[in-house]
Amino acid sequence: MLQFLQLVVSGAAIGCIYALIALGFVLIYKATETVNFAQGDLMMVGGFVGLSFMSLLGLPFWIAFMLAIVAMAGLGMATERIVLRPLLGQPAFTVVMVTIGLGYLARGLVTMIPYWGTETHTLPVPYKDEVIWLGGEGTGLVISVEHLVIIVVTVLLVTSLYAFFRFTRLGIAMQATSQNQLAAFYMGIPVRRINMMIWGLSAAICGAAGLLLAPITFVHANMGFVGLKAFPAAVVGGFGSIPGALVGGLIIGIVESLAGFYLPEGIKDIAAYIVVLLMLVLKPNGLFGDNTTKKV
């Protein structure tokens, strides 16, 4: 039982990362109806940016964390402005191809930047390798602080996002844009600028995910492939749903962690994809997705 709980906790921590990346997908998907395949690579860049702030500028972790998030928001907005906005109104596949290209580009470019390179870097976080015992030292549940930080920061981020969407003018304008662009435009909402900000927000969330994940997997150029596991998370939750992304991420994380222990070797890596295939066959709209049909 203890073993089971242990797996659930560590699965939930990784699930939070998937959930954050899936949240990035969902925000962009809701606002622009396109999928950003470079989301995982944005996360990787976020990890590198944070790393540079810490080791090159010598900033403490939490300040570097905040700065990296701000920098990622800027990068996200710049990407939207330079690459995505000229493609506004083009078929979804065009935009998907561009984001695939951007991801490919980012993976190549990162290895060419001096200091970042192809090596694996360790993010010197203050809470590295610490553990907390729940219910007695040596006998109870052991939670590594890295996992705990992921869960706590995710909860904080999600709550503040919820408050942002619920109570601020900008957040409500974003909701309006993602519900109906044309109507929002008629109401005087600057739709294009809102789209840019949504990209910024999505990139910032991914940057945060990257920095949270960095202590566990290290920072390297192929870190972005974790982002591919966030697709299943987004699909399981229903692609257009923010709570769905969170639940989906947690489900994928926990299933993966349990599969890694109870099922034969190798299943762990593909558990997420088996879950998503099952989901697509049984309930294509996901757990929280609304039943949408295509307009003729």
């Binding site: 690459v83 000229p86 493609l87 083009q90 065009t94 191809m97 561009v98 695939i100 290209g101 951007l102 991801g103 490919y104 580009l105 980012a106 993976r107 190549g108 470019l109 990162v110 290895t111 060419m112 192809t118 150029a221």
Partner: peptide, 25 residues
């Protein structure tokens, strides 16, 4: 500095793809 980079090829192909989609769909 540039020529020996392993990332050179993906960078170029990424740029080419993005360029094609944007300017020559």
């Amino acid at each position: 500095v540039i020529g020996q980079q392993t990332g050179l090829q993906p960078t170029i192909f990424g740029l080419i793809l993005v360029g094609f989609v944007m300017f020559e769909p």
